[in-house]
Design a binder for these strands. Sequence first.
DNA 1: GTAATAATTGTAAAAAATACGCTCATTCTA
DNA 2: TAGAATGAGCGTATTTTTTACAATTATTAC
Lengths: 234, 234
Amino acid sequence: MTEIISDLYHVKDKLYAAADCIIFGFEGGRIKLLLFRRRVEPLKGEWSLIGSFVRLDEDVSEAAKRVLKEITGLENVFMEQLKAYGKADRDPGFRCLSIAQYALIRINEYDEELVEKHGAHWFNIDEIPDLVLDHNQMVADALKRLKQKARYQPIGFELLPEKFTIPQLQQLYEAIYQRDLDSRNFRKKLLSLNVLIKLDEKDKSSSKRGAFLYKFDDKNYQKLLESGYNFEIA
Amino acid sequence: MTEIISDLYHVKDKLYAAADCIIFGFEGGRIKLLLFRRRVEPLKGEWSLIGSFVRLDEDVSEAAKRVLKEITGLENVFMEQLKAYGKADRDPGFRCLSIAQYALIRINEYDEELVEKHGAHWFNIDEIPDLVLDHNQMVADALKRLKQKARYQPIGFELLPEKFTIPQLQQLYEAIYQRDLDSRNFRKKLLSLNVLIKLDEKDKSSSKRGAFLYKFDDKNYQKLLESGYNFEIA
DNA sequence: GTAATAATTGTAAAAAATACGCTCATTCTA
DNA sequence: TAGAATGAGCGTATTTTTTACAATTATTAC
């Protein structure tokens, strides 16, 4: 379907829906965003979010998963609908709704080759170029959502490797909230929640002493939720 | 447009978009929802959210405002997009996305005649009948959003008259959170935020002594936000 | 003028958030 | 191999916020 309609632009007598993905990663203490160069007219070659038209026989969320897998090779990652963008004039070519979804991926796990093949690149979140259509707005909205959501739900872990250190986790939250956190209080708070499993291994990539690795304890987290606990980080 | 396509159902080779409105009100200490009987096949006559197809030349948010005005006569009320519902099989008749929006209205201000003319009725939120399609899911999601949102943003005021008493406000929050609040602590917390303007009038509808009326102080609230304050109620 | 009703007020205790500095484990190098 | 360098890890005191809890006040109805 994409192929057919991408030839004729200015199709305003028919409705289309696109699934656009805001793909976040985390590396080197900074939040990253995966962008690629648009492959279809109009605006071919411009930086853009990764997206696709939604097929008529396909759920919107499936469309987003399909796109994500195409570009990164990843399945079963955290993905949530951000919102629908429905201005009549948002796309000069089509009357096209976009349902934006954001994904959090472990930057060490994606298929690098596949990403390069599609002409995609990781950008620091504070160095995003001009994007096509209303995609900059989508990114801004997604970042806002990420900030809000990270405070009350442990979605940050989706951006870290399965095994991570507490200083890494703190770095992540500092990147999301864009402010420094006190390491003693941060550690105290996190450990008090009882959702981290301490491993016997250390990560020595960033210090001579090495820092203990932890895993997220999803079982305990679910218990915590069921008990009506009001989860909150930093 | 609605008229044309409502004749032929089973149009699955074309995409439609609907704007469905979850309209909340508050009266007698209970959260209410405005529903009406569906006017088009399939499922004509069943209880349903109020909605309409989105016209091709119309913003999605405009479509929702249009519907709301048609039914209640109200404009400029709080309305926010909930999310898009995009399952391929969500509507047996059409391939139709729905962008659900929720509105908070002052139940004393709507146009009662207009509402009745459209066959609409107010239901207590815990007595919602079976609705068409995925509308029950939408209501559940909207309620969840309302609960979350009310805690960190003063949207509750949108459901009360311009002038309200503190006991009324407490009733509202008790209805939203579905738990009792301590009246001394509630009052203390609310007044400490400095976003209520005490008036010289009293409301005597619920007590012999009468309770002082207050207005929401939007200016002070905006100041509070700008100063980076972390607003939280109850 | 007395009973009834809901509105209003204060204080003490507990819990959570914040501020803050030193020691530890390990590696590197002199 | 001793000592310097580096980030990891820990504890305590202070402040702020939240919670728990009961008596008084203004007004109306009898």
